[in-house]
Design a protein around this nucleic acid. Structure first.
Lengths: 210, 210
DNA sequence: AATTGTGAACCTCTTCACAGCT
DNA sequence: AGCTGTGAAGAGGTTCACAATT
């Protein structure tokens, strides 16, 4: 299959949530135009995104919400359960532990790591905090597939390097630094500062204009 | 000035952080090639991004780290202090209150709002939690310029609509929903589920390939 | 000799527009 | 009649390649 762009994958996630909401409202058919309107994009974009993966609609009618949600879930691989390791039991880490939305979507935090001996051995939610040195043992035992990196910037690269050696191939990085990984390893970044600074940029410009 | 693309603005944020780190290391000159290498992009990209705003380098030499950091800070508008209102004192909200990085970068949470009467009146960090109904009064009093939306999806649009009426023009949205705003209002989204689902997509595909 | 700044070329993503299906 | 699916056109972003500068 051809390479699918990151924006397309992101939008599939938003369509998925849109469909969930429509299904809650007992709506069982939807047009690309309606999905587009809900998400502030064009209907052609919606149809094009879906067309990379198949022809899920009926011409003249639209899409069946339940069927399309299932298709997108399958495309995104969220029809299965994913085991997540959380590295860093600071503020962000603890917020994620308590964030029940993840579990609903099939992402289960199965292990927590920190290097702070005051935290190691204590509980965070239901889980014991392990020392980061035990990461490979636990990663294998719990079959961790994704690691969430919530450690300070200067520790992040080393932590990822170690986890790659343990066989973890996907990372959600909260550290404000560019992580380097070998071919085949995937990193996605979550960086609130970048978004806030983008807001700052636009507000500053508007001010200058008038 | 021409319209600058979102990716360019995001990269300026990363250059800013790169320069901060170089300055900490007492490095006072840097090439576009080095900035690029640190961030896994091309040097042409770095130079092009900067060129939209001016000619900050010296041919044959590179960029002065301190001067360039200051220029980018000015471009992004982070050479000033921004007042932030946080709406929603749940898990995400509380993590942000404790997240000291923001303050360092000039983003100050000046007010917190919730609609839960069990929370209103209580303290979160140094700040009292206000009822969401008082948002306009407080927004004006504290001169709130940016609002962080950390409420459930079904409340988010209404909260933003209210804040727009109060004069808030920039939003960082954590709710997993597309917020609609009038022309001139800026929304940036922070959505962990989208990134996790992108990881899920790539892992699933790799598995199928073998 | 080294590195910037930038027009042009290239590539990728989005939108158009319409044939094709229900 | 209405809406999808898609090739082609258009827009936008990235990289090339080199003249200009230190």
């Amino acid at each position: 299959m051809q390479k699918i762009s990151d924006p397309t994958i992101s939008r599939l996630s938003t369509y998925y949530r849109t469909l969930s909401r429509l299904i809650e409202q007992k709506i069982d058919t939807v047009s690309s135009e309606k999905i587009a309107h809900i998400n502030n994009i064009t209907s052609a974009q919606v149809r094009k995104d879906l067309s990379f993966f198949g022809a899920f609609g009926k011409r003249g009618l639209g899409y069946n919400t339940v069927a399309l949600k299932k298709e997108i879930g399958s495309i995104l691989g969220i029809d299965k359960k994913w085991n997540i390791g959380l590295v860093g039991a600071g503020n962000i880490g603890r917020a994620l532990i308590d964030y029940t939305e993840f579990k609903k979507q099939g992402f289960f935090i199965k292990a927590i790591f920190d290097n702070d001996l005051n935290k190691v051995g204590k509980k965070a939610g239901d889980l014991e905090i392990h020392h980061i040195d035990d990461v490979c043992y636990i990663a294998n035992k719990e079959n961790l597939e994704i690691a969430v990196i919530a450690v300070p910037a200067h520790k992040a690269q080393q932590v990822v390097d170690d986890l790659v050696k343990c066989g973890v191939r996907a990372f959600l990085n909260f550290a404000p630094i560019t992580i380097k990984v070998p071919e085949g390893i995937i990193v996605k970044n979550e960086n609130m500062s970048i978004e806030l600074e983008a807001l700052s940029y636009h507000l500053s410009r508007d001010k200058k204009k008038g």
